[in-house]
Design a protein around this nucleic acid. Structure first.
Lengths: 159, 159, 159, 159
DNA sequence: TTTT
DNA sequence: TTTT
């Protein structure tokens, strides 16, 4: 018996600019904080209620990281499709801790849902996850391909 | 052995204003024409290519129909979640014909992804599909609840 | 600007029987531990690798809880559709801790993908989330409705 | 303003063995007929109703086609993730006709949800869409790669 | 017929 | 910390 699916789909706004981290091996990741909210009218009181959920979304690979750096800002609205991953780590007291994140692996999708916002370029983004050449680089050596442009954003191999 | 899933998720733009139809029993439906497009660089020629797909999305129920009428326009960007349904019909020669549509039933979701566009209200939309009272009315008698407002759009029963 | 989506889709197997908790107000929830796994061949070594992810899935409402109790067992394969929710709690030292779960709210879906396993009924499950009467009861005072049977499982209001 | 999504998720059973077609250029596609069904109790009559929807799912590429040939049979339960595509064609009278299918392109996913069924191999399937080497070949000159085996089915590049 |  |  086989076959499993682990998929997360979010549409929401960034609560802050993307946070980019670099590693010794040249790899980079970007973390997005994405808010999703729902509101409803309370059935008893008739009062309007709202609940906001915050998600940590991790983009790995130089390509997706570069897209995040160039095109995403606090307030940007995005569609992301990724997987759930729970990381185990140790806090300062040595106790086990767990953090669950949405990770955009090689089959992940990042799509901008609004135009660029004050990033000085004036070009819009696109289906960044579809840029295969790029998502492939993520575990690879060529750390800094600085040649990403708006022109490359919608690359996708069609069917 | 049991259990099946029939789900469509689209993010795209309306190619035209919603088309609303009324029936003798008071029921109404709105049909949206939604475009999704993908572009890629041809591997041989390096040429940029683009392909646009057009989807017919049917909103039933007075509530969703009203939302479409009031808030959606040609160019609006939406997120929709519905089901595939293939309808059989007869053309003028009596031959069987089939049309496949995305239908937003009671569990469907319609979310506006941009602000209102020239609809004169100035208020924004929301998770229209989440307005349960409303999606429930769709097969029902009370044909014209004219009391939908921007204020009602994000109604959702939380968990 | 409006509209957000928070959706998780999992297909996987239960690592243990459902764990059911009751509350003073009569409410009940079931927690499922669901495994999803992916395997791949290492690019350098050619070695086969596998990674299993464990998900906590919370079913609230007497109805979904009852379905879990009656039809789900360790090893059951299910399709679930829910939302991400991160709960904040305090550990024994008073420090803030966070746990992320997949929650099946009123619009959640639970579908069994294999036949019943040793539950003595011989009937198959179905789209449990679609049983509206039931998912509605979940926040309510409700009436421990003990009348759920295999026969009720596929209830859904059609479109 | 940019970004669109065209995604279909189905869980259902094959109504017939996969139908495989070969082309002069060596390419092959498999078409699956997948049934999804929903049932509900009629609100007026209390009667149980059921509706089955049939979907045409097209797998292109020698790899996915081979997987379908070897592991899928009438009755197999599968998870598929693909895109909607409407093809235009001419009937014998020269009139335009349209057919909508679910197409599994390079980012499509096909996962078997039950064990093999009388196909004589005894091995289980897996996330066939994840076999990148393979899905890549689909537009290519490719090398009818006859070397697909159960062992290759779960290949996926991890994150 | 949209959008970039 | 976003957005409405």
């Amino acid at each position: 018996m086989a076959g499993s699916v682990n998929k997360v789909i979010l549409v929401g706004n960034l609560g802050a600019d993307p946070e980019v981290k670099s590693f010794q091996n040249g790899g980079r990741i970007a973390t997005l904080r994405i808010a999703t909210s729902e509101s409803w009218k309370d059935r008893q009181t008739g009062e309007r209620k709202e609940r906001t959920e915050w998600h940590s979304v991790v983009l790995s690979g130089d390509g997706l990281t570069g897209v995040a750096e160039r095109y995403l800002r606090k307030g940007s609205k995005v569609y992301v499709e990724g997987q759930l991953r729970t990381r185990k780590w140790q806090d300062q007291s040595g106790a086990d801790r767990y953090t669950t994140e949405v990770v955009l692996g090689p089959r992940g999708v990042l799509t901008m849902l609004d135009g660029p916002q004050g990033n000085g370029t004036g070009q819009a983004g696109g289906n960044a996850g579809g840029h295969r050449q790029d998502t492939r680089t993520q575990g690879g050596a060529q750390a800094s391909n600085g040649d990403w442009g708006a022109d490359d954003l919608n690359d996708e191999i069609p069917f």
